[in-house]
């Protein structure tokens, strides 16, 4: 099993995190489509936390990966108690924002919120071939 973690402070770091996901998924020989989906879920999760941290004056958040040949797990951890509303949108959204969570839920096999003592984690995983 392979573990990686990274501190995210800037948009450039988010792009770098997307590359980590892509490289890990390629190493584990996930399909091209699954690699794209995990890369996009990484960008959406990180952008969500990046905007939250900027609004709250926090300088960084963490992202962690764990990878095996059959499973990739990604966890984004931010300080505070803010939640990610994991709600499927029934109505059509024609606005500028508010699609990131719905995309993550669709792109990954599992997406859940884990509340810790002083932080909130967004956990997502994808199985090969699911």
């Amino acid at each position: 099993m392979k573990f990686i973690s990274k501190r995210i402070k800037t948009k450039e770091d988010i792009f770098s995190a997307m590359t980590v996901t892509e490289e890990l998924a390629n190493e584990q020989e996930f399909s091209i489509h699954d690699v794209i989906k995990m890369r996009l879920a990484t960008e959406e999760a990180c952008t969500n936390s990046y905007e939250y941290c900027r609004a709250k004056g926090m300088s960084y958040f963490l992202i962690k990966w764990s990878a095996t040949p059959s499973l990739i797990e990604i966890t984004v951890r931010q300080k505070g108690k803010a939640s990610f509303p994991l709600i499927e949108q029934a109505d059509v959204n024609t606005g500028l924002r508010g699609r990131g969570i719905a995309l993550m839920v669709h792109l990954m096999d599992k997406v859940e919120i884990r509340r810790r003592k002083n932080c909130v984690e967004l956990y997502m995983n994808k199985w090969k071939g699911e």
């Binding site: 794209i36 890369r39 960008e43 959406e44 952008t47 959204n93 606005g95 500028l96 924002r97 699609r99």
Partner: peptide, 11 residues
């Protein structure tokens, strides 16, 4: 590849 920000701009 395009992200949710791009989707928002298109909409």
């Amino acid at each position: 590849y395009l992200n949710s920000s791009a989707l928002g701009i298109i909409a």
